[in-house]
Design a protein around this nucleic acid. Structure first.
Lengths: 332, 332
DNA sequence: CAACGGCGGGCAAACGTTATCACCGGGCAG
DNA sequence: CTGCCCGGTGATAACGTTTGCCCGCCGTTG
């Protein structure tokens, strides 16, 4: 039951370890007869290549590290799932680290993964500015792909949804429904998503009402903030509340119900992300769905391309923007 | 910027690689003066040990594989998070695999992790019976801890919540509130949690009403099933609906509202697990909270103990049961 | 003064692969 | 007939650590 190595297979099939390695890896042409014998011996002995030794020799572990802010953020599990599938399809394993929304631990986790010789990193940066240095350092050592959130221009390859397009979808929809007094409830944090969605609102809201772009309340990405924000803005009777993500929207929905406001007749509420419970809210939340599978696939693809080269930072950094989709449900 | 190795540090500090290794690993006493010189050289050159080479030599990678049914199941992210933290505190990294609720891919992922020389495995088995063989095979090679769900007796160490105790908490609470016509909505699947919760209901419900233990409907762990189950049992007007998990409970809540039933005055609804949106439902869901942090910590502890020994299967398998807590909210 | 014990440190052999080099036939062109 | 190329193979040196073994030195002890 002990580990069976190349040497054992070599002995059993009467040829050298080099040959066995070659037939199993298919790295160089080898005699048909020998190949058969070797393969037979390998399966008979139940040979399994030792990934650690292989990694040491090839200087590639076949693992990719994922560092994310908080796996408990309901938007991330689906992303993790798709990423895991995409990486697995490419024969790579996924190391996961949750950095508790803290840039310092984020940097530490990234460093640890680098020490563990990951072939590449997928990062969902905690903060657009505070994460930048650690991300840039990492990008100097291995291929890095930023997922869902950016980290300043030119730092690393990046895959994210087109937040501006998503917001435009929302604003068009609300305009078509005759809404004219929108209000935006966003996040003050310095994640790229928070900033982009707010900017897109401010840029596009004038189409509904010249005053609209100024109607912005900023807190954080939480249900509690959604509730609180409603208390602040409800007195001015908006006819649409656009939330920077679904958590905020769910909070808003809850508070509006408590206040006796009719959704969507009196006021529309829309979210962003389409987290699992967006469709479960009452009324079901209209939201912008992110193409999670495509995001993950694109990230994996970018990683694959970069890893062909030995140097981590050849060519300029690429940015992929995927267009989201508006999911019109009951809330607006 | 190339990799700096032990050899480089040795050269720079004027002693042998062996000595450098010893001072850095602290594995054997070494001269105070030499130690200082070596350490100084190491930090000056920015030496970082190569985990792959170390793993090859030590025959231990410092990684633990986690294979779970579906990361998108809202109960799991919190568990993953806590597990990641606990493992990280022990200096180990977490490899994650999502097997899409399929025992076959589950077995494949386990095998892959074994090939990657993980030091240990944490498994949340998909199915109590269908996962057994793969789990048993794995347990023969490395330490294995079953988390949250079991897999038959004696297969491997196991950490889970005491479902019977949790159900008892629920039944006591409902009895004290004067509920006498409970109904159980569970899952027909063959996961240990589904079976245990149902059994516990059947064992304890008689305290409320001799007929109660028979009032059981089985579907799966989903919101849709919760809705459907309500359609089936509402005609017989239960005064309490006990759901095998929160997803079912949320579905039940939704359908009850549509049917115009008053919760909790007319009928109480309780769930199990305390997933993130349990508190967000309307009315907020009364549920059984699982001690996620403790579960993860206990799993990590078990792993740590087993890994001391070289042989994976010394001593009988241990089972740890943690007692859950009833979270009384608005729904019952 | 001789023998001995222990400490500090170096040498070299692993760990299991893969890559480089050399070798040895045989077929083919000059 | 000689030289050359090439498919097939084996030795062997890495990859970067850890560790068993040995050796020299110093202090202690009989």
């Amino acid at each position: 039951m002990a580990e069976v190595t190349l040497k054992d297979v070599a002995r059993a099939s009467g040829c050298s370890v080099a040959t066995v390695s070659r037939v199993l890896a298919g790295t160089r042409p080898v005699g048909a007869e020998t190949a058969r014998t070797v393969r037979e011996a390998a399966t008979r002995l139940g040979y399994r290549p030792n990934h650690v030794a292989r990694a040491l020799r090839r200087r590639a572990t076949g693992t990719v590290g994922l560092v994310l802010p908080q796996i408990t953020n309901p938007f991330f599990p689906a992303l993790v799932r798709e990423l895991e599938h995409a990486l697995h399809a490419a024969g790579r394993a996924l190391l996961l680290a949750d950095c508790d929304d803290d840039p310092t631990t984020e940097a530490a986790r990234i460093a640890e993964f680098l020490d563990r010789q990951v072939d590449a990193l997928v990062l969902i940066p905690v903060d657009e500015r505070l994460s930048r240095e650690a991300v840039a350092d990492a990008a100097r050592r291995v291929p890095v792909v930023l997922l869902d959130r950016g980290c300043g221009p030119g730092v690393a390859d990046s895959v994210a949804v087109d937040n501006a397009a998503g917001m435009a979808l929302v604003l068009d929809h609300l305009a078509a429904a005759g809404r004219r007094r929108p209000w935006f409830v966003g996040a003050a944090g310095t994640t790229s998503t928070a900033a982009e969605r707010r900017a897109a609102y401010e840029a596009g809201a004038a189409a509904l009402d010249p005053q609209a772009p100024g109607r912005v309340e900023l807190g954080d990405f939480s249900v509690a903030w959604g509730r609180e924000a409603v208390d602040r803005i409800w007195p001015s009777r908006p006819d649409a509340i656009i939330c920077a993500n679904d958590l905020i929207a769910v909070g808003a929905l809850q508070r509006l119900r408590q206040l006796g406001a009719e959704v969507p007749t009196e006021v529309a509420v829309v979210g962003f992300d389409d987290v699992p419970f967006a469709g479960l809210a009452d009324p079901a939340l209209t939201t912008v769905r992110q193409p999670v599978g495509e995001l993950a696939a694109e990230a994996a693809r970018l990683l694959g391309e970069r890893s062909g080269d030995r140097a981590p930072a050849v060519g300029p950094s690429r940015t992929v923007r995927l267009t989201p989709e508006l999911l019109v449900r009951a809330s607006g």
